[in-house]
């Protein structure tokens, strides 16, 4: 039920924006003429580029602020300086080690968190008893901020890779768990009755009705989980790492190199965006027809 309404509202939102761009086009009653809408695809093709306008303006203003000395360069480097630093580190090969280890941690941690979240979400979604037992605990654990876990994980698992991967796994576990658990529990009762009347049996009704119905929720959870994995990798690397983009961040502070700090932040933004777009793409493939 919940999934249905959400999908419907998504659709209506899309068609709303479609209508919006029509209205942005030439004539009001152009709809009746077959030639009316023709110029529109060209206009809407450039629409995504609008999103670049504000960031470009920000970069220009940023440059001006630093160039005019409003903010001193030792606190904020110029955009060009940041680009040079990143390029230099890339060319010398130093950057790739940091990027690779951070990506590896995120992939392992998010993978683990998503896997465990799927298991727990399925269990609590299907079984009332499992939900009564586990859900109150997990609901309260989810509010613990990422940084609060760090000392405990260092104590338990040392400063090695496992502490970081596990910390990230904790972060990506919760969105997956919460979304899947509610998604499964909210599967349309009417469809479950169909499965019952046609004697699908427990396994088949899970495979053919419950899981497909909850799949959109799982994917929403995975998207959130991957997002949180990037939050948690920073927490892990800032405090206990000798490599990684988070380490670069803190190293930049120690070395008083704002260009490295800003460069690292931009790297996080870029990589986080890439993973988000990738997950969203998968979701749209699977769910959106």
């Amino acid at each position: 039920m919940a999934a249905d309404t959400r999908r419907e509202s998504d659709v209506s939102r899309e068609s709303d924006s479609g209508r919006g761009s029509t209205a942005g086009g030439s004539a009001g009653n152009a709809e009746s003429h077959s030639l009316g809408p023709v110029p529109l695809p060209a206009a809407s093709r450039f629409r995504p580029l609008l999103g670049l306008l504000v960031p470009a303006a920000v970069v220009v203003v940023w440059h001006l602020i630093v160039a005019t000395g409003t903010i001193p360069a030792y606190q904020l480097p110029t955009p060009l300086r940041v680009a040079e630093t990143l390029y230099g580190m890339g060319a010398s090969g130093e950057l790739w080690g940091h990027v690779a280890i951070t990506v590896q941690r995120v992939v392992l941690g998010a993978g683990l968190g998503i896997a465990v979240g799927t298991v727990f979400g399925t269990a609590t979604g299907l079984s009332r008893t499992a939900s009564d037992l586990l859900d109150p605990l997990l609901q309260s654990l989810k509010n613990i901020p990422s940084l609060a876990w760090v000392p405990l994980f260092l104590l338990w698992f040392g400063i090695g890779e496992s502490a970081k991967v596990l910390l990230i796994a904790v972060g990506s576990f919760f969105p997956v768990y919460l979304n899947l658990s509610t998604g499964i529990a909210a599967v349309d009762e009417e469809l479950l009755e169909v499965a019952e009347v046609y004697d699908l049996g427990r396994v088949e009704s899970l495979r053919r009705v419950v899981f497909p119905a909850a799949l959109p929720d799982l994917l929403v959870g995975i998207r959130g989980g991957v997002g949180l994995a990037w939050m948690f990798v920073v927490a892990a690397e800032l405090i206990a790492a000798s490599q990684g983009i988070g380490f670069l961040l803190s190293d930049g502070r120690t070395l008083a190199r704002p260009d490295i700090i800003v460069g690292s932040i931009l790297l996080f933004a870029f990589l986080g965006n890439c993973s988000d777009v990738a997950v969203k793409e998968v979701r749209d493939r699977v769910v959106g027809r």
């Binding site: 249905d4 009417e190 009347v197 053919r208 497909p212």
Partner: peptide
């Protein structure tokens, strides 16, 4: 077997798959 008053189809599945249920 029962045909419900509402269609009650699986909206992620195509017609063939729905009938196969």
């Amino acid at each position: 077997g029962m045909v419900f008053q509402e269609p009650r189809l699986l909206d992620w599945a195509d017609v063939r798959e729905n009938i196969a249920v």
